[in-house]
Design a protein around this nucleic acid. Structure first.
Length: 249
DNA sequence: ATGGTAGCGTAGCTA
């Protein structure tokens, strides 16, 4: 809550999408967020692992959630904003340490999740509705979405198979990367820094795992995008992920 | 090639 209070005070977002909330719905800070003005909430949590939520100052309609890979994980919620745009908040499985779907069931789950998402979005392609998809997608797709493309190519989150599958998902619904719309692909850009670094800012071995995608019909509404790097240093207990902010008219 | 941190909960898993 401390991090959210600071984010709200500094950035005043209309809508906040959270992933990895790691708490059951009964223990989600519903009242505290309502007091801060975020009265409209669609939460879908789970103790300790995964969990997603959309909290909003604007009314949310047609809220729902989906489950993936035949599991009960809480990794996807959606809602419709007052202007009719559909908002999806997603949390892709991290995938474990070993980038081999045979040796590592967690990596197999991640690849299957990406495939199933791609097929689902492909099947909804004809829908002309404006849509926004955000979340911790746990893949850094571009060369400069990681601190070292060469050193990260065998590391889960930046392997060729994950990149291929994330880009296929993006392609499946003609999603536009709203952040790279403003930041050239040659420029290093991260949203996550490991807790394991002695000095995250000095080593700056980051990855861009958190994304905001919009359908092409929303591109003219994009005003600015910003990754709040400074939040990685917020005391006393920063998240290893920082907020990705997109301003749309 | 390895180990490094955080959280939950009190071992070992997930991130």
């Amino acid at each position: 809550m401390g991090l959210l209070e600071r984010l709200i005070a500094e950035q005043q977002p209309d809508v906040i999408c959270l992933q990895e909330t790691k708490t059951a719905d009964e223990t989600f800070p519903t009242a505290a967020l309502a007091t801060l003005g975020y009265k409209h909430q669609h939460i879908h949590g789970m103790k300790s692992y995964n969990g997603v939520a959309i909290v909003s100052r604007l009314p949310l309609a047609n809220v729902g959630e989906r489950h993936w890979q035949g599991r009960e994980d809480r990794r996807h919620v959606f809602a419709e904003l007052p202007n009719g745009a559909e908002l999806h908040c997603c949390y892709v499985p991290a995938g474990g340490d070993v980038p081999d779907p045979v040796a590592n069931p967690k990596f197999e789950h991640k690849l299957g999740f990406l495939d199933e998402m791609t097929a689902w979005w492909q099947s909804r392609r004809d829908d002309a509705k404006p849509k926004i998809l955000v979340g911790d997608l746990n893949v850094a797709p571009l060369e400069h979405d990681v601190w070292s493309h060469k050193q990260m190519t065998g590391v889960v989150s930046h392997t060729p198979i994950e990149i291929e599958k994330l880009l296929a998902w993006q392609e499946s619904h003609s999603w536009v990367d709203a952040v790279r719309h403003f930041v050239p692909s040659e420029e290093k850009l991260y949203s996550w820094w490991s807790y394991r670094a002695q000095d995250w800012a000095a080593s700056d071995r980051g990855r861009r795992l958190d994304h905001v995608w919009v359908t092409p019909n929303l591109v003219p509404t994009l005003k600015q995008a910003h990754i709040l790097r400074s939040a990685r240093g917020w005391e006393p207990k920063p998240s290893d992920h920082v907020p990705v902010l997109v301003d749309m008219s």
